[in-house]
Design a protein around this nucleic acid. Structure first.
Lengths: 234, 234
DNA sequence: ACATTTTCTGCGGGAACCCGCAATGGCGCA
DNA sequence: TGCGCCATTGCGGGTTCCCGCAGAAAATGT
């Protein structure tokens, strides 16, 4: 079994490499990439069955790297190993994970035992394994506070700075429907329940989404890139 | 000389501790805190002359911790050791650093030699030392693209979601002047020069500020807390 | 098949926002 | 002192945004 580790922090890289060789004697070869370019080249040419990847890397972000890798070899199992329990990351990943693959999400603050467990479960057994801290965001039939898919899509467009008309065009909705989506977005982000004077709901929504970790810098960058691509074809 | 290291990542903590004992034999005692509470208690009771602190910690952020420490002992020298070269951090720090103290900002990606240099320069010699990657934001007489103090203040209020009238009240400006500030903010963030269809400038400004690292999650949290405090006294 | 609920859509109005124009008032410089 | 420059402020108008109302369309339950 061949495993690739993508991690730019040398200490964390060593830690994972050690954990892998301890927990998975089945692994015959371990490679190590320290940035996105290296990772994609290695993944394309190395024929790895499994990858451990840090989501925060210097150039680009881990989700885009994973998308590229999965586009080329959709059966690759990827364990994401991240500092942050952001809903934004989990949403980004679950949108791109292919049917044929397995993935996991472990926090760097997890114990060594939990990391080892995830390594075995995901890389070797092909299970899906998500850290409990994130699982709350997985609620599909939600308690009214989780964003559904279309609301999240509108949130992304709002975050880009698009106006209602443009969002309607991109989502193939009428203007009024977009405004309804925004309304429920405002509700779910809890914007009106704050007392105090009136706020600019649009900006407040972006602010809250970021503070609640529903969006983060990588999400914004990805959405921006996607929007620019969309605009070329409009 | 007594030094306190505030760092929640065990590997990075060990790295710094090693570097300190190698580079600064003058240090007689090294303590280690792994979160904000520990850091404040240690700093208050330990009588440290110098601190090395990670800006990203689990609870609260490093800047608020530094503010609390400096409020209690303003001569303490603090070397910030961070993963990110965000303008937001530098602005936050330079607003709270007391006259009597010295501080430094080093990236975790810096070489061991540069870290050692910063340790000696800041902790021992009491110099100011800022990583080159960040120094670009220090331009006081700026090439028209850097935000001046009042523009940054308006940016913070905008980011909170305040509307023009409220910003005017908080900054003691007329409505129209706030709008002028917003105008120059939009210019400097480069919002109009994008082709494409019109955007919602307010949201776009927040988006750009975040992508340009002029704001980050910690900034938003701090500004939010400060705003809530202000509202109590209104 | 029918009734009920939910979602989508258009219309209209009040509020907030963006910004051009012009008047005022400080500040430096010759 | 006088002149020009720039920040500040008020006014007005066009645009966008937020949202209540009500009808149309779709989904759901019986």
């Amino acid at each position: 079994m061949k495993v690739l580790v993508v991690e730019d922090d040398q200490f964390h890289a060593r830690y994972v490499l050690d954990a892998i060789s301890e927990e998975l004697p089945e692994v015959t070869e371990i490679a190590h990439a320290i940035n996105r370019d290296e990772a994609e080249i290695e993944a394309r040419t190395g024929g790895f069955e499994a990858i451990v990847m840090d989501l925060q890397m210097e150039q680009g972000n881990g989700i885009d790297a994973a998308r590229a890798i999965w586009a080329h070899s959709p059966q690759t199992r990827i364990l994401f190993w991240s500092n942050y329990a952001d809903e934004a990351y989990l949403r980004g990943i679950s949108q791109i994970v292919p049917e044929a693959s397995a993935y996991g999400y472990v926090l760097k603050t997890a114990t060594r035992d939990r990391l080892k467990l995830a390594l075995r479960a995901v890389l070797f057994e092909g299970q899906i394994m998500i850290s409990r801290e994130l699982y709350q965001y997985q609620r599909h039939r939600q308690p009214s506070s989780a964003l559904d898919k279309s609301e999240y899509a509108v949130l992304l467009d709002l975050a880009l700075g698009l106006q209602d008309k443009m969002i309607a065009e991109r989502q193939n909705l009428s203007l009024r429907t977009v405004q309804n989506r925004l309304q429920s977005l405002y509700d779910k982000l809890g914007i009106d329940e704050e007392d105090g004077p009136a706020l600019n709901k649009r900006v407040r929504a972006l602010n809250c989404a970021i503070r609640k970790k529903a969006l983060n810098l990588q999400t914004l960058e990805s959405a921006e890139a996607e929007y620019q691509r969309w605009r070329e074809t409009q």
